[in-house]
């Protein structure tokens, strides 16, 4: 049973299916099986956070989950957040506040921040720092990322009212 099997799941609101070996990581399944290369792969042992996606509403390391485990789940990746014409408030804020330089950590940072702002609207500085402490960025020094998430939190609260 090391042979591939079909994994069916919902990704960014769309039903998708593709074959995966039991050992195929969710990160590779998204990138290679489904062509969603927005999810980045850095360390492949849970430390860097570049591969963070939401599974059934919760942030997970897609490099630490097998694709077969996601059978029947609802997955959200960076591709579902917003495009060039309809950016999510977090994407706008990262752009405005220089929350990215090379962009390698950005998909993971954004998905981690989405979980935070959806579960804790109006999250404060401490909560933002705590949440993104799980993700590594080698460029920005983090300060601009924290500012971006804070700006997005304010904007999303404003919209919510």
């Amino acid at each position: 049973m090391t042979t591939p099997r079909t994994v069916e799941l919902v990704v960014n609101g769309e039903r998708r299916a593709a074959d995966a070996e039991p050992r195929t990581l969710l990160s590779d399944f998204l990138r290679e099986g489904l062509g969603l290369t927005g999810t980045h792969v850095g360390c492949e042992h849970g430390v860097c956070g570049a591969c963070t996606v939401l599974v059934d509403g919760q942030s997970v390391r897609s490099c630490l989950m097998l694709a077969v485990q996601a059978e029947g789940s609802e997955v959200r990746t960076i591709e579902g957040l917003g495009g060039a014409d309809d950016m999510h408030p977090l994407q706008e804020a990262f752009w405005e506040k220089h929350g990215l330089q090379c962009g390698f950590c950005t998909p993971g940072m954004l998905m981690t921040a989405v979980e935070l702002l959806e579960s804790t609207p109006g999250a404060g500085m401490d909560e933002i720092r705590e949440a993104i402490s799980s993700n590594l960025c080698r460029c920005t020094g983090y300060q601009t990322i924290v500012e971006a998430v804070q700006a997005a939190a304010e904007r999303m609260q404003g919209e919510g009212q």
């Binding site: 049973m1 090391t2 070996e21 039991p22 050992r23 990581l25 590779d28 492949e44 077969v68 485990q69």
Partner: peptide
């Protein structure tokens, strides 16, 4: 790196 092959039961 990637995991070595294994049988999987759920």
């Amino acid at each position: 790196m990637k995991p070595p092959p294994f049988d999987y039961h759920c």
